[in-house]
Design a binder for these strands. Structure first.
Lengths: 232, 232
DNA sequence: GAGGTGGTTTGACTTAGGTCAAATAAGTGA
DNA sequence: TCACTTATTTGACCTAAGTCAAACCACCTC
């Protein structure tokens, strides 16, 4: 791994060369296969991760066995920083587990593990990083707020919202065609539902001529209708 | 208001006298009646609040008009800091609304409003405060995680969990008797359900001899059973 | 091309929990 | 204490979305 990769990580973008070097020399690079578990919510907390390549899902399993995906993490973003930060005041406490499970979604997901001690050393000396951390947390908080807002809505609404916000990314390239970046199973879990319900709802949209589904490809045929459903 | 009140606010607990003075001289004290709105999620962001007396609920209204309470805020805690922090990098941007609604829950809820500018001035010079902010956010994040975990469970489970965690506070005074700190309506909204469903579920618990309900007073008669339901 | 192995879809069935409407109980100010 | 508003409970009913079981499909590998 090239050390300069660390510069792409927003959290580290304003560190000095020597600080980067310090982190680089003390972090672990790990590679995971598709579907491989990165950690369980039962295991002791070691530190947080940065995605370099591939993607990761963060999820919880409810007692009835259903999976609920809370985040997808893409390259240069971090995950599992929260226990670290929450513990800040009782620094270096050992008995702490991860708050959720994490699984690799792609064949060669490359991650960097930053151990708690390394992080504390840096953050204590670096206010900019501290502020960035705050900003990251705030964004995550907002994300969870949206998530909560969504799961209180019905499934078609959640799907419509998902498609519309996904589409925003694509529309900038002038297309009404989007490609799901994840499997339908993961999408269902992310939307807080199950495969069957998602499948049926998509079919209904198709029957109503709102979208056209072909595998992972979705073509929006009636954006107005979709917006209306999403707004509910 | 006494200036020393600010010392009770965890976020400010390690500020110097002069810093406290600066905040004190530049903040607004506001009083709200029960049920009075503090802000709507449509109005421009002004700054964050600190509860001095009384309590506050933070909630969202879904399009079908249902209310979902996300937080209850009690004395010496802050709320609505997130937009402030998220904006940190584009400091002092004006066009921003509150992410949710806030309403006073008691007759004389006293709040302090800290405007964005004041906060930025302080935090930029004070690393401890920065770290505390991180820790606050991290805790809030965890709270939301629990919240999400809960709303994916069925209503009886959510109630059981609520009772058990509420009871923890009381048990320290050796009681199996708890008193709901909020109305049943608010409890229902907090548990992500409606009054009727909450009522029926409580009745069921009572019929099953798990608890005894008398207005806001709940007596736990069979803690084992409750634990079992909560764990489910 | 046969046989796997996930991912996805369909159908038949069940149910938690929502809606609507109305009765009761509690709380509050004059 | 009365009158009136607000909170809580109850009953009858309905529906979104979950379960279970089975079929289908699209890639892979051998």
């Amino acid at each position: 791994m090239d050390r300069d990769i660390l510069k792409n990580v927003h959290l580290f973008s304003e560190l000095s060369e020597s600080e980067l070097e310090k982190i680089y020399s003390r972090c672990d690079l790990k590679t995971f296969g598709k579907g491989e578990m990165i950690f369980f919510d039962t295991e002791p907390y070691q530190g947080f991760y940065i995605v370099i390549e591939g993607s990761v899902k963060i999820f919880k399993i409810s007692k009835d066995g259903r999976e609920h995906i809370v985040h997808f993490i893409h390259p240069f973003n971090t995950f599992a920083e929260v226990p670290l930060l929450e513990q800040y005041e009782k620094i270096r406490n050992d008995e702490f587990t991860y708050p959720a499970n994490a699984m690799s979604l792609e064949k060669d997901t490359k991650l960097i593990l930053i151990r708690a001690g390394v992080f504390y050393d840096i953050v204590e000396k670096n206010k900019t990083m501290c502020l960035k951390m705050i900003s990251t947390l705030a964004k995550r908080l907002r994300h969870l707020n949206v998530y909560i807002e969504n799961i209180t809505q019905d499934v078609p609404k959640r799907i419509a919202r998902y498609i519309l916000t996904e589409q925003i990314k694509i529309i900038s390239e002038n297309k009404d065609q989007i490609e799901l970046p994840i499997s339908k199973h993961d999408l269902a879990a992310y939307l807080g539902t199950i495969d069957e319900t998602l499948s049926r709802a998509l079919k209904k949209f198709q029957d109503d001529n709102v979208i056209e589904v072909d595998g992972k490809n979705i073509k929006v045929k009636d954006k107005q209708a979709l917006v209306k459903i999403a707004a509910g």
